[in-house]
Design a protein around this nucleic acid. Sequence first.
DNA 1: GGACCTTTGAAGGCG
DNA 2: CGCCTTCAAAGGTCC
Length: 454
Amino acid sequence: MLAVLLLHHWREQRAVVSWLAQTSRQYLQMKWPLLDVPAGATLKDSRSPSPAHLSNKVPVVQHPHHVHPLTPLLTYSNDRFSPGSPPAHLSPEIDPKTGIPRPPHPSELSPYYPLSPGAVGQIPHPLGWLVPQQGQPVYSIPAGGFRHPYPALAMNASMSSLMSSRFSPHMVPPPAHGLHPSGIPHPTIVSPIVKQEPAQPSVSPGGNAKSPVTVKKEEEKKPHIKKPLNAFMLYMKEMRAKVVAECTLKESAAINQILGRRWHSLSREEQAKYYELARKERQLHSQLYPTWSARDNYGKKKKRKREKLAQQQTQDTESSLVSKSKKPCVQYLPVEKPCDSPASSHGSMLDSPATPSAALASPAAPAATHSEQAQPLSLTTKPEARAQLALHSAAFLSSKASSSSSSSGLSSPSPLLSRPIPFPSVPPTALLTSPPSFPTALPSPQAALAVLQA
DNA sequence: GGACCTTTGAAGGCG
DNA sequence: CGCCTTCAAAGGTCC
């Protein structure tokens, strides 16, 4: 009799598990349409709590994009961050003085870094960490997967044990030298040498003088430890695929503009969760790379933006009309119109605070003012348009970098209005009174497309 | 192949 | 302290 009952109970559990797997997969596909969620990879088998079993389900192939080693740890829990749920994690962590979210207590990290030792040596497949942990929906992934911001963080024993240890700071030693000294030709295993590792013998901090050539070679060998993603970057990562799906756009410049506006239309709570994620990511990054500095990456990108900016400033000062832009006139933002429509499932735009102060006063959004000021200007992305702006007002061109130009930028006649095809941006005056309300201000998508094609 | 475009935020440097 | 610069992601575009 007992055996019959147990069998029946077991069958019920199996049925529940099966149902959960199906519904979870449907949920994921609904939330992230572009997300290719293979059946069976969505829900972790409840009978096998350890993710180790995923190794059998995750194809051991190199993903085109490396997976963020931290992102899977940052379980983007809708349960936790649901707008309906009180953002209790926010208020106590916001520094009332600076308005900047304070570093969390070590214990706060536990829900966000649920990676278990089962991931040791495993490819951090997107769907691997997509499996809800502890019944939580997890952080979304873009259609193309994530790149690997921290190459040296490719899952290894020390890393995974670090994560499995709930990331208690006192248990976080510097990353062990040689993430995979075994030399396993695993695609995700990158150069194990971490720049700042104090225990790294090759660094020889003891003062073992090395020739400049050797130092230079070692410098080249050092993996590029990327900056931790900020809140907006995390938001972009999550929403990019969605925007691309909605807009059939692929150009990141346009997508980013859309995302930038959507970012501002997010409610305080919704932004707060990304700030929270970013804060945790920064903390994790700082703990993994204690000696890493953002300065280390300076110069890694051979950007000529500075030169271009300087050139542009020179042009502005000289009122030069010559456009030396390499790119043709690209109307990014008109394309946004169909995408920023209320059709967005985000819904946050409609839930935006009634007043900018409500949104901008968010302690989690310290740079909102700057962003809003920059928004009107940023709408003119074309160098030609910038040249036009230079004709109208040089102050506009520098308004993004100058916080004192807000009044002039908002009070001056919008250069956008002088453009042949005015972008349906938020009127500058609207910026003073209310957050962007794109759906009502945007013309029809057809008109936008026509404008774009014109 | 690499820089550029675009977005916001973080961080470092400088005056 | 404020301002400026750089970098983080991403993919099309251009050189």
